[in-house]
C-alpha cells in the first residue's frame, strides 16, 4: 500500500472518527440544550444500572474515537513533513497548526477532565452523592467546552487545502 492510499485511509478515518466523537457531543447539546442540575434522586433511579451501562459504552465509544481522530490527523501532517511547521504555526500551516492545538486540548479534556468526573457521576468510582452531583456540573462544562472548541476547529480544518488523491 503506497503512502497516497494510506493518506486517503487516514482522511477517511479522521472524518469518520471525528463525526462519531463530536457527533456524540452535539447529540448531548440537542438533547439537553439547557443545563438542568442533577438531583440526588436521579442518581438512585431504579433504571440507573442500565443507564450507567449505556452511558459507559457511549462514553467509551467517543473517548476512543477522539484518539483515532487525533492519531489520523497527526499522521497526515507527519507523513507530509508538515507537523513541525504546523506546530510552530509557520506560514500556510498556521491555521491547521492552531487546529492541532485545539484538537489536542479537546482530546485531553475528554480523557483527563470529563472522564475522571464522569466515572464518579456514573458510580464507576465510588463517591458520596454530593461529590457525584458536583462532578456532574464539571462534566457538563467540560463537554460544552469541547462543543464550543469544535466550531473554530472545524473552520480551521475546512480552511486547509484538498488534494484530490482518489483521482490523481
Amino acid at each position: 500500500m503506497d503512502m497516497a492510499m494510506l493518506d486517503l485511509l487516514a482522511r477517511w478515518l479522521h472524518f469518520l472518527a471525528g463525526v462519531i466523537w463530536v457527533g456524540h457531543n452535539y447529540a448531548s447539546v440537542v438533547n439537553r440544550p439547557r443545563w438542568r442540575p442533577l438531583a440526588a434522586s436521579d442518581l438512585s433511579d431504579p433504571d440507573s444500572p442500565k443507564l450507567k451501562e449505556v452511558i459507559n459504552r457511549e462514553h467509551g465509544t467517543f473517548r476512543w474515537a477522539s484518539v483515532v481522530t487525533w492519531c489520523a490527523g497527526i499522521f497526515m501532517l507527519w507523513h507530509r513533513g508538515w507537523l513541525p511547521g504546523a506546530l510552530q504555526l509557520q506560514g500556510t500551516l498556521a491555521p491547521i497548526g492552531v487546529g492541532v492545538y485545539i484538537g489536542t486540548l479537546m482530546m485531553l479534556n475528554v480523557w483527563f477532565v470529563l472522564w475522571p468526573h464522569q466515572k464518579k457521576v456514573l458510580g464507576l468510582v465510588p463517591a458520596p452523592v454530593h461529590e457525584r452531583l458536583r462532578c456532574s456540573r464539571i462534566t457538563h462544562l467540560s463537554s460544552r467546552t469541547n462543543t464550543m472548541l469544535s466550531i473554530p476547529l472545524l473552520f480551521l480544518m475546512a480552511s486547509g487545502s484538498h488534494g484530490g488523491y482518489l483521482l490523481r
Partner: peptide, 30 residues
C-alpha cells in the same frame, strides 16, 4: 452560578466568536 455553556445558543455563539477572533489573528499574522 450561571455559565454561558448552560445554554446551547450562547455556547455556539462563543464558538463562532472564537472562530472569528482566530481567523482575524491568522490573517493579521500571515
Amino acid at each position: 452560578m450561571r455559565h454561558p455553556y448552560d445554554n446551547a445558543l450562547t455556547t455556539v455563539a462563543l464558538g463562532v466568536a472564537l472562530t472569528a477572533v482566530l481567523a482575524a489573528l491568522l490573517r493579521l499574522l500571515a
